[in-house]
């Protein structure tokens, strides 16, 4: 990893790319949601322009009122609140995904910007790098 960082520093000093992490999976049934979150946190070390978007079942990652004691896994929903401290402040949800699941922004553990599908499409189209889970 340190080599990669050196390369980025030497080759790309001052070059900031637009990175987007697309989250489309519910939190506990698969490992994707947790992995996506960890990669986003690690990416913060590279000082890039990071956005995180939540579409389809990905919106379930942000639900508040979680209690994971019964299934004996870590409650990583709390970790989404740490993103701000990692300077990842651009969080978006797709309205259609929220509506299809009967969710409103009041159900979510962090503040997000809700976009309609056309706005989300445009935001995706303007990225340099998109990593999807």
């Amino acid at each position: 990893m340190s080599d990669m960082m050196d390369d980025m520093e030497e080759g790309g000093e001052g070059v900031v790319k637009k990175f987007m992490f697309v989250n489309r999976k519910a939190p506990h049934g698969t490992i994707y949601a947790l992995e996506g979150l960890e990669v986003a946190l690690i990416s913060a070390a590279f000082d890039q322009d990071v956005s995180m978007v939540f579409v389809d079942d990905g919106v379930y990652e942000l639900i508040k009122g979680v209690n994971t004691k019964g299934i004996e896994v870590k409650d990583f929903s709390k970790t989404y609140r740490a993103l701000e401290g990692y300077d990842i402040e651009k969080l978006y949800v797709e309205k259609a995904s929220m509506d299809a699941r009967g969710l409103t922004q009041d159900d979510l553990i962090v503040d997000v910007i809700a976009l309609d599908s056309a706005e989300m499409a445009n935001l995706m189209a303007e990225q340099d790098v998109v990593i999807s889970y």
């Binding site: 946190l41 913060a44 070390a45 870590k74 409650d75 990583f76 709390k78 970790t79 609140r81 740490a82 401290g85 990692y86």
Partner: peptide
């Protein structure tokens, strides 16, 4: 306890 992760050093310093 609050965030369920150990912070990166940069984040720790700021916090």
């Amino acid at each position: 306890d609050e965030y369920q992760i150990a912070p990166a050093v940069r984040v720790l310093t700021k916090a």
